[in-house]
């Protein structure tokens, strides 16, 4: 299944750094997301987007993950040549990721 079937996400930008939240609709799915959606898996899925490292932060208090992706916005909003200069649409790219459920 795709992540979009069990989780939602919002993208944010700071300079050339992209952050992607990943929030399960059902809190019981949080542990499974922690297990399946590793930083390495995210970097591999978004290899055309993320040029730098991916760091994953876990928030068990609100049952959410936050992926911080370095060198991912073609320089950042003000001088990027990308169509989507903020990378706002990239939350949908994360949710296209396939996982075994």
């Amino acid at each position: 299944m795709k992540l979009i079937d069990i989780a939602h996400s919002r993208a944010g930008d700071k300079g050339n750094i992209l952050n992607l939240s990943l929030i399960p609709y059902k809190e019981k799915d949080y542990e499974r997301l922690c297990q399946k959606v590793t930083p390495k898996a995210v970097k591999n899925h978004l290899k055309d987007i993320i040029q730098g490292d991916v760091i994953r932060y876990e928030l068990p208090n609100v049952k959410a993950l936050n992926f911080v992706c370095y060198q991912s916005l073609l320089g950042g909003v003000t001088t990027s040549l990308a169509m989507d200069t903020h990378g706002k649409s990239l939350s949908s790219a994360l949710l296209e990721m396939e996982i075994d459920y």
């Binding site: 939602h8 996400s9 919002r10 944010g12 930008d13 700071k14 750094i17 952050n19 939240s21 929030i23 932060y57 928030l59 609100v62 049952k63 959410a64 936050n66 911080v68």
Partner: peptide
């Protein structure tokens, strides 16, 4: 939750 993590590292 979506807004809590918006633009957060």
């Amino acid at each position: 939750k979506e807004q809590l993590l918006y633009e957060v590292h």
